[in-house]
Design a protein around this nucleic acid. Structure first.
Lengths: 234, 234
DNA sequence: AAATCAGACTTACACCGTAAGGTCGGAGGG
DNA sequence: CCCTCCGACCTTACGGTGTAAGTCTGATTT
């Protein structure tokens, strides 16, 4: 960024003439992306249209196109915004297992910070700058631990599978209410699906944290075991 | 396409008068849903619009609304279609662990049968009839194994997280090509992200199966261990 | 034969993303 | 000082979307 350079406009502008026709709204990629994310957080992905975003910003829809070539690019910016704000702690002094654990918790926290946006995030490859940096960091933890490239790739993926699925369920799953047009009724479930009925209470949000953690620990433990046996019998 | 046509004969309709204005296309929920799924399989989710589907079926867009109250209901039907065609093998003579494993593989096979549709599937709660039946079956395996309702719910979720994430990656992930509007280039990755560059070869489709299986086995093994210790020290 | 009705079609509306081109205010050079 | 240029924003328009409302038509029922 820093494209605007010296002038920076703002300071020392004594002009008392208020430009009535041109409000100098001062659009920018950052401001547009921030407004878009706020809109999604507030009203959901479906509310994010160029016209709606324009009215949110106090400009016309097409003005956005001066800063982003298309909506796709704006969505990319949102992905990057989310990842950067997350500041998933990848580096640190702890051992590799603990760093992996913290990165996983950081990922979940990031998703929960923007639950309405996460379904988009999950269904799009994040090969944006911040995205590849994030991925590189996680794989780095595994490679630093001494895993082969193949094992690092495999375990990265498996943890990623789990994290994606977990965050998707917590942000878009049952706890957010039914999504089918004609959801199966509670009575129907109670009458015909005893197993689901018995488990249903534990699908409530207050159990999310514990469920997430025990599952993550199973995975991490499995990876840790593989690490041990690898050192013992190469 | 085939819109005019010879009636295709509903049985025993001797009327020689060809109804020129009304082609007797014979729409039905099943036929519409099947055509919709075929269209998605062929051209992707974005191609599924009411008008396009109508032209595929040889009818007008609004005719579909006589069989489905809205597009949402049609999407529900697709979810159910996918689940029913999967026939995920939940019951069987094997032990609970093996049944769990087979259900997991069945889920993955189902996703891979309709890769273009799966992202929709993953981001929508499947509280349709076939959906709850499926869920009930999996939880039933765990409860039959002797797990408490709480543990059954927890392990069901954790397996579900993994399956969803894995299928999402295989159907919509890197292997399907970049999705960002301006993806980070390969040279950029090679130059600045050594860990990702080292792992990238193992992100190719030929490694999907092995990655999926070792991760699943880690999870199943963890659940199996919990089952053992539970019997030993209740 | 008249009335009813299911199953299609037609029209229309409000929204979407965006291509193309217009307009205006300030900056820079003569 | 004027004039040109240009970045930033606006206007208009097009083809797409889902769908509410109304219409037509042939078959079935009475």
């Amino acid at each position: 960024m820093a494209k605007s350079k010296p002038t920076a406009g703002r300071p020392a502008r004594p002009s008392r003439r208020k430009p009535k026709t041109r409000p100098a709204s001062g659009l920018s990629r950052e401001r547009i992306a921030a407004a878009a994310m706020a809109l999604v957080d507030r009203e959901g992905l479906a509310a994010l249209s160029t016209r709606r975003l324009g009215s949110e910003l106090g400009c016309e829809a097409m003005s956005i196109y001066h800063h982003f070539p298309g909506k796709t690019h704006l969505m990319d910016a949102l992905v990057d915004l989310m990842l950067k704000a997350a500041e998933v702690p990848i580096i640190g002094e702890q051992g590799w297992l603990e760093r992996l654990r913290r990165a996983a918790h950081g990922f979940r926290a990031m998703a929960l910070k923007h639950p309405k946006f996460f379904p988009f995030f999950a269904t799009h490859r994040l090969n944006t700058p911040a995205g590849v940096a994030f991925i590189d960091g996680i794989i780095g933890i595994l490679r630093d631990a001494g895993f082969s490239d193949r094992d690092a790739a495999t375990y990265f993926r498996e943890i990623g599978y789990y994290l994606t699925g977990a965050a998707l369920d917590e942000t878009a799953g049952y706890a957010r209410g039914p999504s089918a047009a004609e959801p199966v009724s509670g009575e129907m479930i109670a009458a015909n699906f005893p197993h689901l009925a018995a488990a249903a209470p534990y699908f409530q949000p207050q159990h999310f944290q514990a469920t997430f953690e025990t599952g993550l620990e199973i995975l991490l433990d499995g990876i840790w075991q593989a690490h041990r046996s690898r050192r013992r019998a190469p």
